[in-house]
Design a protein around this nucleic acid. Structure first.
Length: 479
RNA sequence: UCCUCAGUAGCUCAGCUGGUUAGAGCAUCUGACUGUUAAUCAGAGGGUCACUGGUUCAAGUCCAGUCUGAGGAGCCA
């Protein structure tokens, strides 16, 4: 009958009137042999459980240490102490699971570092910081489904295993059942994938977009939200080998509609978290402010976390073309003082330093850049009338960089084939994709939002490994 | 993958231009106290100085390599 218990979040929201309650959770601290700070993950707030002197025998008292799980039955009463409104006066306390304090690595008074907590990712959920981060991560995931559901989008499950490596979005993880010490080979020595499980070479998906486009050509509006895999040897604060991505795809949308949707989407997500995870945001904002106090003045951010979110939510994103972006960079004093490490000229891919200058120094808010040179963008992006640029859009966020990448898709069969050939994409293997352009093709567009980057942006966590429960990065696949 | 920095007690760190038995705070353990808020007070235990090799009378400290981590770059979401 565990279901009779009340969660601490609900309990703290009710008026204390001496009513009997059952609570269960894990001990955060045990003060003065009397006061147990109990947490069950429903909220960052701890519940104070008071074990009156004499209630417990010495044996039981000794078992109550940080990390121990308890079942407490008692009365919800007005607290006599100052730190909390209400508390539970225990009638009985049962130890559900002991926690050996000599072995338990999470003594919270030690202020463990984020790096250390990553090594004990199975326990870090029990900290205030990660409690807040993962409750917000959940809220964002829920808000994503709500946003699209309310707009009549279909949630499409695109495959995790794919045969196409055509998108060129990065290095892929191979999926195979062939013995790697002695695989079957062709006469020329290459591996014979006809013998493999699927009868061809297969990989983990790097994007669900192409499949998403197929469904959009029937449902009008779809979105995907699933895991994505990139085998890049990236060691940065914003890359993972396994991450989650949201990819909406909309028929009868042009690049303008696409930008409008993406901006509305991001603002909606921020608004949702601000009204549903206030307490967690306040905690993270405080954490961030404390952390920034350690930094030299010029490295501190202008806004607190919540001010930043309000600002982003209530101001229009700046929209500029790639060509305008290059002009801004070329005319900047930063450029004239030769402070950019990389060359700036039309045709280059914008470097991190360029994006950061535009977003953090020049506009100081999210920027949507459109109209990139065709040569530096993917084959499926729609060629503009100038014949040089494509209808691509990247949304750059302060502190994170590229958070959204999208485009209007090339819906004209001949133009698409031409682009594929120019970029050496195997046309024959992609006929299933090209067929959508043969049978009732329509203008359409879509984008990809990096879920973890969005969680980073909202929580202010600076390392992407701290916003996913179990991070997969080069040389790290624990748990 | 490249560049830079780091690895000393369970955690966070100090340890100077190489020199006796490697320190602190917190945690842990023992005891005291008992309306505490990261409870407090007293005492105790706790170390392969990442690993391998080298230089030296002598290495936590200097050198080389390896591993791991962090930050930045590239790739991108």
């Amino acid at each position: 009958m565990f279901n009779k218990r009340t969660k601490i979040k609900a309990l703290l929201a009710t008026e204390p009137a001496g009513q009997e309650v059952t609570v269960m959770g894990w001990v955060r601290t045990f003060r003065n042999n009397q006061f147990i700070a109990l947490n069950d993950g429903s909220t960052n707030q701890n519940l104070q459980v008071v074990a009156a002197l004499g209630l417990l025998d010495d044996e039981t008292l000794k078992r109550i240490t940080t990390g121990t799980s308890l079942k407490v039955v008692g009365e919800l009463v007005v607290s006599q102490g100052k730190g909390q409104k209400s508390e539970v006066k225990a009638v009985s306390i049962e130890v559900l699971g002991d926690c050996d304090s000599e072995q338990y690595p999470l003594q919270l008074k030690n202020r463990p570092s984020l790096e250390y907590l990553r090594e004990i990712a199975h326990l870090r959920f029990r900290t205030n910081t990660f409690g807040a981060v993962f409750r917000i991560r959940h809220s964002l995931a829920f808000a994503i489904h709500k946003f699209f559901n309310d707009k009549g989008f279909i949630y499409l499950h695109t495959p995790v295993i794919t045969a196409s490596d055509a998108e060129g979005a990065g290095e892929m993880f191979r999926v195979t059942t062939l013995p790697f010490d002695n695989p079957p080979r062709n006469d020329d020595g290459s591996i014979n994938f006809k013998e493999d499980f699927f009868g061809k070479s297969t990989n983990l998906t790097v994007s669900g977009q192409l499949e998403g486009e197929l469904a959009a050509m029937a449902f009008s509006d779809i979105y995907t939200f699933g895991p994505t895999f990139r085998a890049e040897n990236s060691n940065t604060t914003r890359h993972l080998a396994e991450f989650w991505m949201i990819e909406p795809e909309m028929a009868f949308y042009d690049i303008e509609d696409n930008m409008n949707l993406a901006e509305e989407f991001i603002k909606y997500l921020i608004g949702y978290v601000m009204s549903n995870n206030r307490e967690d945001l306040v905690f993270l904002a405080q954490r961030l402010a404390d952390e920034e106090k350690q930094l030299p003045q010029d490295k501190r951010s202008e806004f607190g976390l919540i001010e930043k979110l309000i600002f982003v939510q209530s101001n229009a994103f700046e929209r500029i073309t790639y060509t305008e972006a290059i002009d801004i960079l070329l005319n900047s004093s930063h450029y004239k003082k030769k402070k950019f490490q990389y060359e700036v000229k039309w045709g280059i891919d914008l470097q991190s330093e360029h994006e950061r200058y535009l977003v953090e120094k020049h506009f100081k808010k999210p920027v949507i850049v459109t109209g990139y040179p065709a040569a530096i963008k993917a084959f499926y992006m729609r060629m503009n009338d100038d014949g040089k640029t494509v209808a691509a859009m990247d949304i750059l966020a302060p502190g994170i960089g590229e958070i959204v990448g999208g485009s209007q898709r090339e819906e004209r069969y001949n133009n698409l084939v031409e682009r594929m050939e120019a970029m050496h994409v195997p046309v024959e293997e992609m006929q299933w994709y090209l067929d959508t352009r043969r049978f009732g093709s329509v203008p359409h567009a879509g984008f990809g939002l990096g879920f973890e980057r969005m969680v980073q942006f909202v929580t202010g966590m600076t390392n992407i490994r701290d916003v996913i429960p179990f991070a997969r990065t080069p040389k790290n696949c624990e748990f």
